[in-house]
Design a protein around this nucleic acid. Structure first.
Length: 570
RNA sequence: UGGGGCGUCGACAAAUGGUAAGUCAACGGUCUUUGACGCCGUCAUUCGGAGGUUCGAAUCCUCCCGCCCCAGCCA
């Protein structure tokens, strides 16, 4: 596959077609928005962004790019009790990391509080909104049920003057929290509950992360979102399926306000096997310290997968692969893993790292001798060059690369067996030394000096090639191995009598504190990504230092041998 | 039982009345100094079901079945 050398968002990703684009095309032919496309990504700053948001980000920014349009970043910050400045910073970091740029178009719904307030007065003037004194519970009772129409509030027919006066007094702080609300006057008998006189403003004394104490009334989502879109000149307001029922209300507000009317379009949110994308649940994992934080490498947050070693490009490729549709679906997590492997295969240099070491002594190799052997950095990238590997009499190899009594087709080390040490020599195992529990702790081998570099002059073939690290040159390292956070394919589905935490996988983290890695790794800094040959892709953790190297496993290599073994035993 | 949506391979998902793309997974094979990668091949006579319209239907019509969302002063 010939790829562009530069891998930026503009050159290496192709246009994708989906039903949203089809709608845009129709608008283009009808001339509804003069061919202009302006989208927005509108997160509420009440948590960290996750893979579900990545789908939305890629969609919104992608639509803008594909149509020579614009995409804004807008924080939907209308509920001060859940929102924090910390979250807005993390969101900006994550969107940028994913590779998207909103340029100077960074907005907040709170930027529009004055305008929104004026819009509300306008609806009051038009006789389309009223102040209601009913309590929250009474409003609920009046709303009726899904099958029964609602009842009108006794305050529904106040005069325009009275409503205006009351609303102004709500704003000026005359009433306590919850004492009154402003409602749109629509239809208490509508089959759509959202149209049964929805609340537009509530009284809420809370410090807002941007407007501070300026307001004691805050607009509801429904009264803020469409108008914010309208103010920004958004043409296509893309959101998830659960807002489908809100569209008539969205349209009602912009129509009665007589302002620019964007088109709301809904798509199915992302679901992934073995993971939850519920903000509420992710928050809980953080609060209950089930994970180390929002950026725990097992979290499906963008900060988590970044720390895990996922690349932005792999996430973008994943998002374009899963497509955009209206059908609820659950994407196999293996598809995500496929896209990181694909990307890292091109980008990550190969290195030698022994995760669970056992020692090998090459009895016929001179004591004190060291050789430098040449190794290829990345066979998938011809420009990556080579490096040198120190070799000596004592080495570490992987525990799993030796078996006393190997099964058929096992072509690693066993009594009397010969293998190739990658880039080095053929060695033959003569003896295995065990501790009192019978665990192999050391192998005594001999090497064939004729096979330097890994080829036998006599043409002799060897089935297995294993990785190794020279004992005197080895760097100590800690390696974090990860498995899926949940043991259940759909962790959001909680069994009777159990809670959500019962779905956790107790073995999602395994810390290997005795790993040995080749010396070239010592100079690598946090964030660097490598492939430990025959094992997987790893990145150097944020907290890693040159004294204490820490690697996080991004994803393992595909392992057809392991899979075969597993099939046999099961 | 009110309103709004959705049903195409194990998982995603195209095809918009012209004879079922692609990707992942799986399975064979090939290559191999990573049991990786790559490469080659197999994998839906059928589109939730039943009728109908048409020369022709996954696409249009009718009825049925199943799944999802909605009764926050959350977003």
């Amino acid at each position: 596959m010939k790829h562009n050398e530069k891998e930026d968002v503009n050159s290496s990703e192709k246009k994708t077609s989906n039903f949203v684009q089809t709608i845009i095309n129709e608008h283009n032919t009808s001339g509804r928005f003069d061919g202009r496309v302006h989208t927005r990504f509108p997160p509420e700053p009440n948590g960290y962004l996750h893979l579900g948001h990545a789908k939305s980000i890629c969609l919104n920014f992608g639509l803008a790019k594909d149509n020579d349009g614009l995409c804004n970043l807008r924080f939907d910050d209308t509920n001060p009790i859940k929102e924090e400045a910390e979250y807005v910073e993390s969101i900006k970091t994550d969107v940028r990391w994913l590779g998207f740029d909103w340029e100077e178009r960074e907005f907040f719904a709170s930027d529009y509080f004055d305008t929104l307030y004026a819009y509300a007065e306008k609806l009051i003037q038009k006789g389309l909104a009223y102040v209601d004194d009913l309590s929250a519970g009474e409003i609920r009772e009046h709303r009726g049920s899904m099958t029964q129409p609602g009842k009108e509030s006794p305050f529904r027919n106040r005069s325009v003057e009275e409503n205006l006066d009351l609303f102004r007094r709500m704003k000026s702080g005359e009433y306590s929290d919850g004492a009154k609300v402003l409602r749109a006057k629509i239809d208490m008998a509508s089959g759509n509950l959202n149209m049964r006189d929805p609340v537009m403003y509530r009284i809420l004394r809370a410090k807002h992360h941007r407007t501070g104490e300026k307001w004691c009334i805050y607009p509801m989502y429904d009264f803020a979102h469409g108008q914010s879109d309208s103010i920004e000149g958004i043409t296509h307001s893309v959101c998830t399926l659960e807002f489908e029922d809100h569209r008539p209300l969205y349209d009602w507000f912009v129509q009665n306000l007589e302002i620019h009317a964007p088109q709301q379009i809904e798509f199915a949110r992302l679901n992934l096997t073995y993971t939850t994308l519920s903000k509420r649940r992710l928050l809980k994992l953080v609060q209950e310290k089930v994970v180390s934080g929002w950026d725990d490498p097992r979290m499906p947050t963008l900060s988590g997968i970044r720390r895990r070693g996922y690349t932005p490009e792999s996430i973008r490729n994943f998002c374009s692969a899963i497509g955009v549709a209206k059908a609820n679906s659950t994407v196999d997590i293996q598809l995500l893993e496929h896209y990181v492997r694909e990307d890292l295969n091109k980008k990550a240099d190969r290195v030698m790292g022994v995760l669970r070491p056992i020692k090998v002594v090459i009895e016929n190799y001179p004591e004190g001798k060291t050789e430098e052997l040449e190794a290829i950095n990345n066979p998938a990238d011809p420009n990556s060059g080579t490096r040198t590997l120190p070799f000596s009499r004592e080495l570490y190899i992987e525990e799993t690369d030796y078996m006393d009594d190997p099964p058929k087709k096992y072509h690693r080390l066993g009594p009397g067996r010969e293998v190739r040490l990658r880039y080095a020599y053929f060695i033959t195992c003569n003896d295995a030394i065990k501790d009192e529990d019978g665990n192999v702790i050391e192998l005594r081998c001999t090497y064939d000096p004729e096979t330097r570099g890994g080829n036998a002059p006599d043409g002799r073939k060897v089935r297995g090639t294993i990785h190794w690290v020279s004992v005197p040159h080895a760097q100590e390292a800690t390696v974090n191995l990860y498995d899926r956070l949940f043991g259940k394919e759909n962790p959001d589905e909680v069994e009777e009598g159990q809670d959500f935490f019962a779905n956790l996988n107790p073995n999602s983290l395994e810390v290997l504190s005795n790993a040995k890695v080749e010396p070239s790794l010592k100079k690598m800094s946090p964030g660097a990504q490598v492939q430990f040959e025959r094992q997987g892709y790893f990145c150097i953790d944020l907290s890693s230092t040159s004294e204490q190297l820490i690697f996080n496993q991004t994803v393992g290599l595909r392992d057809s041998w392991g899979k075969m073994q597993q099939k046999k035993t099961s």
